[in-house]
Design a protein around this nucleic acid. Structure first.
Lengths: 252, 252
DNA sequence: TACTTAGTTCCACTAAGTGGAACTATTGAA
DNA sequence: TTCAATAGTTCCACTTAGTGGAACTAAGTA
């Protein structure tokens, strides 16, 4: 849409990062050709970059299948980086407790640009299926967790976000955001996919800004309106506790 | 000592990786000057590389202190990479059980070049102090976990390794490795530091090679010779179970 | 006020990185 | 078995992208 990466940045490095960016949970293994097509780069160049990445353990090449995957070095760096995500560590015990109390999946979202990313997740132990994975990007305008963040951004930001919302839903969303600002909690029924519902609440930082939200989600069958109302209260309390831990002084 | 990185590799990319390599558990925050000194690179170049890294979320710059730290992107990639470390996932339940049975710290080491890296670790819940951290590099020739791996490498490899061992200890080590090859288990008393002792055993892969070991470690006061003997048996059994899961067909 | 230290910006130079072409290895269809 | 198609690797001449020094700004320090 606007600014970011385009053009700027050291080309060689940017391309290498693009390579790493190709790997996802869904596609953790890629061949040389797949990669070079994905980032539109000559195979020779791609090979060379991959070689350096491999030498340093950022990617790993399977000698038999010739497929690449992300390497151990990234895992180790990830462990170091993890420690520096403050809110994650703060929220952890609260989220775990909420999961245990409700037996439903509890998720922490962070605002990143005009999206939210799942940073931490405590799944209901029994549900094998993981709906959202750590690192996954989701929209702000759909789902309880997104709306809880969106409602507390400034006008320009929200206005811009509304442009990506399909027509008639815009009106409805505006009203909903106003309510969220009042109640400090949000909900959603089958919004981001059929059969998934949830409740969420904003996390305030020391400056009173909202850069994160905590949400409970699960199958719509279990999330009846009155249950959701209860969950809204619960998650709101938890989010406030976390906010306070982070130095937020505001009212409940 | 020998081969690896020197010279080869795309310079720009290699330098960027070197930058990321500067960050450790002990020093997770660095200033521009610290980094540029550490990797001996002009400040201007370092700045430019850091800018691209920051744009992509591989590092994060604190606006106030101007210090850099590893970014969220690395954490997310780390999560993807984690899934592909097969032995780690396989060993997990076994290691957890061993920790619960013994109440001591259980660690998984992987052979990386001529070192071992800690890949997974289940600490005895009560001991706050973490002796070894995930991603940390340790020598092969000291400590039970190292010797368990070293004993099963080929002659050339071991010979070369012995050159880094202080004088008179060499003889002793050679004999010890022979025993380890017989018993499939190793031990150590105060070897890698005063007050730390342990027992370990090799993990065999489907080809019968040893690229990993599992170890139990803790304060020497608790690790009396007969306790260690018991632990050696326990960890040997666990390592064999993991080896079997990985497709190892060999004898116990 | 002058001095030190840290980070940023600018720009001319050239070696580092590039991509196409040629080559090899592998697969599978005829 | 041969041929064609596909995937990965190697080579090399070209030039643009990346470099580092110098100049500049900002924030301490004495």
């Amino acid at each position: 849409m606007n600014d970011n990466d385009t053009g700027k940045g050291i080309r060689t490095l940017q391309r290498s990062i693009d390579i790493l960016e190709c790997f996802t949970y869904e596609q953790p293994e890629l061949t040389l050709t797949e990669i070079s097509k994905k980032i539109e780069l000559a195979k020779s160049t791609t090979t060379r970059l991959l070689a350096t990445l491999e030498q340093n353990g950022l990617v790993q090449k399977d000698g038999n299948t010739l497929k690449y995957r992300l390497g151990k070095k990234l895992y180790f760096w990830g462990q170091i980086a993890e420690k520096t995500i403050e809110i994650k560590e703060t929220a952890k015990p609260f989220m775990e407790k909420l999961r245990d109390d409700t037996r439903e999946t509890v998720t922490l979202y962070l605002l990143e640009g005009h999206q939210r990313v799942c940073v931490q997740r405590f799944g209901s132990k029994h549900s094998v299926q993981h709906i959202v994975k750590v690192g996954e990007q989701l929209p702000l305008w759909a789902g309880a967790g997104g709306k809880a963040i969106l409602a507390f951004q400034d006008e320009d930001f929200i206005e811009r976000e509304l442009t990506s919302v399909p027509g008639e839903q815009g009106e409805k969303l505006i009203n909903e955001l106003a309510v969220i600002r009042q109640t400090h909690s949000s909900y959603s029924f089958d919004e981001r996919g059929i059969g998934v519902s949830g409740a969420a609440a904003p996390v305030f930082n020391v400056k009173g800004e909202v850069k994160a939200s905590i949400g409970i989600s699960g199958p719509s069958i279990r999330f009846t309106p009155d249950i959701v109302e209860t969950y809204q209260e619960m998650v709101k309390d938890v989010a406030l506790e976390v906010s306070n831990e982070l130095g937020y002084q505001g009212k409940s």
